[in-house]
Amino acid sequence: MKLAVIGGTGMIGSRVVRKLTEAGHEAVPAAPSTGVDLLTGKGLDQALEGAEVVINVTNSPTFDEASLEFFRTSMNNLLAAGERAGVRHQVILSIVGVDQVPQLDYYRAKTLQEDLLRQGPTPYSIVRATQFFEFVDAVMSWTADDSTVRLPATRVQPIAVADIVDTIVEVATNPPLDGIRNIAGPDVFRLDELGRITLAAQHDDRTCVTDDKAGMFAAITGDELIAGSDAHLAPTHYRDWMQQAR
């Protein structure tokens, strides 16, 4: 099977390409470095030529209101190019609870992307994942200084990128869901608790302070980021992953 992986040189996309290739598929990475521009459409027709499936794991360069236009333009361009190429299955990576957090610009933008995909001409699958293990350091850095990390008590259920990649590959190489596959890590944490676990594992002597006004996730006060009972729980635990990462 030939699959085009949009964002195929990034952290997730490159792993998707590798796993598909190892399974015997023809996986074509598409990214600015390969001559593909989602916002202008440049190179899309060539990247999708002969592809049965398109996997879109691209991300907006910003998390602010500009992300709305990024996902609107890129999704419309990709759907149009897919229809011209005769693509039979469009897959995107989204976020668990994305449609329950309208107060965040980026989540509204990802909801728009999902809506455009549903309304498009091609059978589709949406893989919604919880926050990545690999992004915990970045989340901490948003509200940190030399001595303190400030994090809200928002409940999260993080997942390893490797487990996300496994699900994307499984979904993309099977018939379209025409719906959503929710995936999450096996453990629920408060974000401030996750920060303390991370600092301890990294032998970082900074203090993690609970601050319910700190960072983007402070706007979320309920369980919107926690997977529901229909979610597929991934096998990798955060503490085990941290130990292996060290």
Rank of each mutant, 00 (worst) to 15 (best):
L78K: 07
L78Q: 03
L79Y: 10
L79G: 04
L79S: 01
A80D: 15
A80K: 12
A81M: 05
A81C: 06
A81V: 11
A81G: 12
G82D: 01
G82K: 04
G82Y: 01
G82W: 00
E83H: 14
E83L: 09
E83A: 15
E83R: 07
R84T: 13
R84Q: 10
R84K: 13
R84W: 10
R84P: 12
A85P: 01
A85G: 05
A85E: 03
G86W: 01
G86D: 00
V87Q: 00
V87C: 00
V87M: 00
R88I: 00
H89A: 08
Q90G: 13
V91Y: 01
V91N: 06
V91M: 05
I92M: 04
I92N: 05
L93E: 07
S94H: 02
I95G: 03
I95Y: 08
I95M: 10
V96Q: 00
G97S: 03
V98R: 14
V98K: 11
D99H: 11
D99C: 12
Q100Y: 11
Q100G: 13
P102I: 12
P102T: 02
P102E: 09
Q103M: 10
D105N: 11
Y106H: 03
Y106T: 03
Y106V: 00
Y107D: 01
Y107N: 14
Y107W: 15
R108M: 02
K110E: 10
K110M: 10
T111W: 04
T111K: 09
T111Y: 09
T111Q: 01
L112F: 08
L112N: 12
Q113T: 10
Q113S: 06
Q113A: 10
D115K: 12
D115Q: 13
L117A: 07
L117C: 07
L117F: 12
R118L: 08
R118K: 08
R118G: 06
Q119P: 07
Q119T: 13
Q119N: 13
Q119F: 11
G120A: 03
G120M: 04
G120Q: 00
P121R: 00
P121S: 05
T122I: 13
T122W: 14
T122S: 09
T122G: 05
P123N: 13
P123C: 08
P123D: 06
Y124T: 10
S125W: 05
I126T: 02
I126C: 02
V127G: 04
R128N: 05
A129M: 12
A129N: 13
T130R: 00
Q131F: 10
Q131T: 15
F132G: 03
F132I: 02
F132C: 02
F133H: 09
F133K: 05
E134L: 02
E134P: 04
F135W: 11
F135Y: 15
V136K: 08
V136G: 05
D137P: 13
D137C: 06
D137G: 02
A138D: 13
V139T: 10
V139I: 12
V139M: 13
M140N: 15
M140P: 15
S141L: 14
S141C: 08
W142S: 12
W142N: 15
W142E: 15
T143N: 11
D145H: 00
D146R: 08
D146G: 11
S147F: 12
T148L: 15
V149P: 09
V149A: 06
V149D: 01
V149E: 03
R150G: 15
R150F: 00
